[in-house]
Design a binder for these strands. Structure first.
Length: 398
DNA sequence: AACCGCTTCAACCGCCAAGGG
DNA sequence: GCCCTTGGCGGTTGAAGCGGT
């Protein structure tokens, strides 16, 4: 609730840390752990507030921090994840082991953002600033879709954040002895979040790619190569895969999921239908209520926005294994997520070797046919999947 | 050498959510 | 249910560093 008094107290030092202070903090934490951050400074003999100590530790002193220049792979990771997650640096940081959210945030603000802007890409939306880059006849429809997508994305991120929080709690309290499979060697948060994220991305990716392959539905949503209509899409999982990025490592029942997404017709109502013995339905008035799903429903969630009505049901158990394996999953997304959602960054990334390295002004690199655009987006998500799929040791970036 | 402008990044600020009394 | 504390997050700041003139 209220703001913590923190460093307002007189006598507490602010500003850069001295080596002596670092040493004190390091020594104390190594011996006792940090425990209560508020109490730590006194115990460690530091004239700092607990918040300052925590920050110093997490952003600088922690032993598992990699410092120095970001590799090209890391840059790509950041850009891709930023396109997906927005300014959620802590979430992005979980995919970049040994990098802190603060470091990533700084790097984004001082390097990547500028580079994207220079290339004519809006660093916020990851779309070309110039809509002419998209196909001309799809332009107006695409513009109309942007608001859908923004709404969807906003709701998705909220739900995702909530799921992550809840899953963290579950994983912490109930699954200490659960097998972790190829558990990451990094921090607890990295061992949890990426798995969920990975599968969400898989779902996402295979979803739009399948629908694109099948009927052009995803493409249609952008107005590229089709109209706004798309067939009803169904998402069914034979294995447990959370449809939303989540750190779900818990007893979340979810043997099957069915998405029945539809934006066809005048209503453009997309609906994700859940099925199962804990079937429940919930409708919300606004997509921003997406996270408001009930605990009792455990893993079903739904929302109604102006354009999409969505319910997700997850039955069965969310285990680390199931979260990692979406094999056999049968996934269909309709144009709930259109190709346009991914924006323009894919084009950048496909040229990243050149673009990112030389920081050149490639403001015209977005031109291309619809099929190229489709391929670009497909590659874009494949990139993300490959990236988050790879355990840190396998990843080229680490 | 001195000045200036730009960039970088560690650290701080303010807000929020969760938990506990 | 209310209030307070705590930890965490994202946005912002400002000192230090760097390059150009």
């Amino acid at each position: 609730m209220g703001r913590s008094p923190c460093c307002d107290k007189v006598g507490l030092k602010k500003g850069p840390w001295t080596p002596e202070e670092d040493q004190k903090l390091l020594a104390y934490i190594e011996e006792h752990g940090h425990g209560s951050w508020r109490a730590l400074p006194t115990k460690a003999g530091l004239q700092r507030c607990g918040k300052s100590c925590r920050l110093r530790w997490t952003n600088y002193l922690r032993p598992d921090i990699k410092r120095g220049k970001f590799s090209l792979q890391e840059e790509q990771t950041i850009i891709q994840l930023h396109a997906l997650l927005g300014n959620r640096w802590s979430a992005i940081a979980t995919h970049l082991p040994k990098r802190t959210d603060n470091e990533i945030k700084n790097y984004w603000n001082t390097h990547l953002k500028k580079r994207l802007a220079k290339m004519g890409i809006d660093p916020v939306t990851h779309k070309a600033k110039n809509d002419a880059l998209l196909s001309n006849d799809g332009q107006s429809k695409n513009a109309a879709n942007l608001s859908h997508m923004a709404q969807w994305e906003s709701a998705r991120l909220e739900a995702e954040a909530r799921l992550v929080r809840e899953s963290k709690l579950r994983s912490h309290s109930s699954f200490q002895h659960h097998q972790l499979g190829n558990a990451s060697s990094s921090s607890a948060s990295t061992s949890v979040l990426p798995s969920g994220s990975l599968d969400a991305l898989k779902v996402w990716n295979s979803g739009w790619s399948r629908s694109a392959e099948g009927s052009g539905g995803a493409l249609a949503s952008t107005g590229i190569g089709g109209d706004l209509e798309s067939p009803t899409s169904t998402l069914t999982f034979s294995e447990s895969v959370p449809p939303i990025m989540t750190a779900g490592v818990g007893e979340n029942p979810m043997p099957t999921i069915e998405f029945v997404g539809s934006t066809s017709g005048s209503s453009e109502a997309g609906m994700v239908k859940e099925e199962g013995d804990q079937q429940d339905w919930k409708r919300l008035e606004n997509s921003t209520h997406l996270p408001e799903y009930k605990e009792g429903m455990e893993n079903s969630l739904s929302f109604t926005s102006g354009v999409h009505d969505m319910t997700m049901s997850m039955e069965g158990t969310w285990t680390p294994e199931s979260l990692r394996t979406s094999g056999g999953g049968h996934v269909h997304f309709g144009n709930v997520m259109g190709v346009g959602e991914e924006g323009f960054t894919n084009l950048l990334l496909n040229n990243s070797e050149r673009s990112l390295s030389d920081g050149g002004d490639d403001s015209d690199n977005g031109s291309g046919s619809g099929s190229d655009y489709y391929e670009d987006n497909k590659n874009y998500w494949n990139n993300i999947l490959n990236l988050v799929n790879s355990p840190p040791s396998d990843s080229p970036m680490f």
